[in-house]
Computed example of a mutant assay.
Amino acid sequence: MTAEEVLKKIKLIELKSKRRLNSSFLGEYNSLFKGVGMTFSELRPYQFGDDVRKIDWNKTAHFHEPLVKIFEEEREMTSILLIDVSGSMNFGTRKQFKNETAAEISAILAFSAIKNNDKVGLILFSDKIEAFIPPKKGNAQVIHIIKTILDIKSINKSANLNLCIDFLLKTIKRKASIFLISDFDIGDYEKKLCILSKKHQVTGIRIYDRVELNFPDIGWAHLKDLETGDLKWVNTSNKSIREQYSKEYKKLLLQTKNVFTKCGSGFINIATDQDYIKELFNYFKERH
C-alpha cells in the first residue's frame, strides 16, 4: 500500500473499532484481566470477620490494639500483541486477507486496553522479529501500532514462534496479557508456549480463511507457497487430494487448540469473514 492508502486504512480501522467498542464489550474485557498483584493500601483496626493472617503484629504491639493490613489489587495491566506476519498470513478469498483481519482485531484489542487505562505494545514476527513497539498508553500508541502492522510488506518467510517467545520473555518482565495472532502454521512451539503461559496470561487467536477448511474443485491449479515461494501444479478435481488436504488441515486445527489447552492458555478461531467482535466478546465472557 502507498502512504496515502495506509493512512486511509488506518482511519477506517480506527473509526470501525471505536464504533464497535460498546460498554458490554469493554466490561467483559475488563473483567477478564484481574490485575497483576496486590499492593499495600492502609492499616485499620481489626473488625469481626477479618482474616487473622492479615494482622500486623508489630504495629499491633506498638499501638496496643489489633491492626490489619489492607491491600488493593493492581488494576493496571500491560497488553502485548504478538502478530505473525509471515507469508501464509497474506492470503484470503472471502471478505479480506488474514493479515487485514489480524490488523483489525489488533486495533480492537489495543483500543480496549487504552480505554481500560492499560498499556499496549506490539511484536511483529516472521522467522525474525520484524518490529517491536514497547508498551505505552494513549490513542497515539494505538495509531502507531496499526500503522506499523499495515506498513509491513508481504514477507515470503516462514514463522518462528519460538524465537518470538524468547524475545518476549527477555523484553517483558512484568506479567502481561499476551494476544498471539497467527494462522499457526508454525511448527513445534508447545514447550515455549507453556513457559510463556506460566509467566503471562496468553490468548491464541487463530485467523483462517474458509477455503482452507475445504479446498474447492477448480481443476488444475498453479499454487504458490506464500512462505517459500515454491510453485506447484495440483489437480483439485481429484477428490482424494481434496479430502486428504481437508483431513490434514482439520488435524492441524485440533492440534493447535490442544496445545493451548495443555498450556493453560485461551484460544479462539476466527475466520476472515466472521464477526470477530462477537467471537471476542463470547470468549471474554466465557473465560470470566
Rank of each mutant, 00 (worst) to 15 (best):
I123R: 02
L213N: 15
L32V: 12
K224N: 13
S17N: 04
K285S: 08
Y245A: 09
K239R: 13
S246W: 00
E104L: 07
F71R: 09
N156R: 12
C194I: 08
F184W: 00
L253S: 04
K18I: 15
F97C: 06
K59L: 12
E227M: 11
T261G: 05
I205N: 01
S177F: 15
V259R: 10
S182M: 03
N90D: 11
K239W: 05
K285C: 01
S79F: 15
E65D: 07
S31V: 11
E5K: 13
S79Y: 14
K9C: 03
E243R: 14
N282W: 09
K247G: 01
N235H: 11
T272K: 04
K247N: 12
R242C: 12
N269W: 11
K191N: 10
G27F: 12
V234R: 07
E212A: 14
L180F: 14
Y249F: 15
A131Y: 13
S265C: 08
G35S: 09
I186Q: 00
K34P: 03
R174T: 11
K34Y: 03
G229P: 03
N162L: 07
Y208L: 15
Y276S: 09
R44V: 07
G27I: 04
L150M: 08
L163A: 14
N269G: 05
H200Y: 12
Y29T: 03
K147A: 10
C164G: 06
G266H: 04
A131M: 10
E190A: 12
F179S: 00
I186Y: 00
V52K: 08
E42H: 07
P135T: 04
K175G: 06
L109V: 11
F167D: 02
T39W: 01
D230R: 15
S112L: 14
G37N: 15
T39G: 10
Y276N: 03
F260K: 01
T236K: 12
L122Y: 08
D185C: 06
Y276C: 07
S154M: 13
E74P: 02
E28G: 05
T78H: 04
A107T: 04
C263H: 01
E73L: 09
C194H: 06
G35H: 11
L193Q: 00
T256H: 07
M38S: 13
F284A: 00
H144A: 07
A3K: 10
A271I: 00
L193I: 08
A103Q: 06
D275E: 09
N30M: 12
I165H: 01
L223G: 07
A61N: 08
F179A: 03
C194N: 12
E190K: 14
I178M: 14
D273W: 00
L223Q: 13
V36L: 12
A159P: 08
S41W: 02
C263W: 01
C164H: 01
I80R: 00
A107I: 04
S106A: 15
F132M: 06
M38C: 05
D127Q: 06
E104D: 10
M77S: 11
L124N: 04
G187H: 05
Y208M: 08
Y249N: 09
N214A: 09
T272H: 00
V202R: 00
I10Y: 02
T171W: 04
R210W: 11
R19P: 04
F167A: 10
G219Q: 06
D84R: 01
